[in-house]
Write a protein that binds this DNA or RNA. Structure first.
Lengths: 205, 205
DNA sequence: GTCTATAACTCGATAGAC
DNA sequence: GTCTATCGAGTTATAGAC
């Protein structure tokens, strides 16, 4: 049952990729060093040679994943695009990224919840997403009468929720809506355009 | 650091409540029988006396939580309310329920993802939420020209996402939006009305 | 760098006194 | 029913040969 994968690349890369896979599937507590060694097709002792212990290995993986899921967000939110362009760009790019890595959001959210103080500092290297400019932009559009009055916090929360949740709750969504893998995948592709449309239809006057 | 709580009720209830707390905080794999015993203020051996082993104890907790989060959904979706009433009722009741138990959704989603086959059958006692009637209703409203054309799957997904995600991603949302506990709590209260409004504004013609 | 063997330790589970 | 003591399996981590 356990697939032993002989991967390409250096031993360190093999370990890294194997660890990523196993940690995502089982979480920090559920993952076993033996599982990771098997997945990488190497010996358990080598894990300790390259990464001193389980915690260090996990931290390396966790930080890499966090970084991969954020930098682009800031560049969108702080750019000179119009509000609607930002909404469209964010949804399209973020959903695309998650389609490629569908299990990372739940993994990150879960580990953050178990170690809030530790991880919130580590991820993003201490920087957090800059939403101030986007919030100003929303308030400005409201004053200009382009969009209806609403709390920017709700707008942001709604956007993030609709982009991320279907993946975090994938098994549940599939079961409730009766979708097989292909149907789910197609629906997620559609959401790149459907979610921004849904938002803009709601806030436009 | 470890709070030993002397709870009220029978020993079985003490164990049940302690286990709920510890499993929610650490998950099945991360929880220790010793943690649960400490939390309940009793001895480890007693856990095995009342619940045969860790797995049985976990299953009991998991099923109880799943059941608490679903039955009312069916009764809303299958009722004779209008579409807009159903949307308003679902959001209001579901968000209220999660405010009272903010950590349960992440707990359930996480364990389902680690054991999809096992748990999807157990929760809801084999029954799944009945959305057929709601979907028909949406399609009917589209034909009547009351709401704009859209895929009912997206509408349902959006609604569920906006109700659940802010809690699943609470630490993240708080950090991004810069909210303390009180502010977060107030925002969630607002969402009981804001989310249905956001949806209805989007789909109304 | 990579392996085998094993030490050191954690944790679920049981035995048996009260 | 509840406790103390302990076993035994499974895991992380290390020692040491190659």
């Amino acid at each position: 049952m356990a697939k032993i994968q002989q991967q390409d690349g250096t031993t360190e890369e093999k370990i890294f990729n194997a660890a990523k896979k196993v940690f995502i599937a089982k979480g920090m507590a559920g993952a076993r060093m033996q599982d990771i060694a098997d997945e990488a097709g190497i010996n358990k002792a080598l894990l300790h040679y390259y990464f001193r212990n389980k915690e260090k290995l996990f931290e390396t993986i966790f930080i890499e994943m966090s970084l991969r899921f954020l930098p682009r967000v800031n560049s969108i939110f702080e750019s000179d695009m119009s509000l609607f362009e930002k909404i469209e760009t964010f949804c399209r790019e973020y959903i695309s990224k998650i389609i490629e890595n569908p299990f990372i959001p739940l993994f990150i959210l879960n580990e953050i919840n178990k170690q809030p103080e530790t991880f919130l500092k580590k991820m993003w290297g201490g920087k957090k997403p800059q939403v101030a400019k986007l919030v100003e932009q929303i308030e400005s559009e409201i004053k200009k009468g382009k969009i209806r009055k609403l709390n920017p916090d709700h707008l942001l929360m709604n956007m993030i929720s609709m982009c991320i949740f279907p993946f975090v709750g994938k098994p549940l969504c599939q079961r409730i809506l009766g979708l097989n893998e292909t149907q789910f995948r197609n629906l997620m592709e559609e959401r790149k355009k459907e979610v921004p449309k849904f938002i803009i239809d709601s806030i436009s006057k």
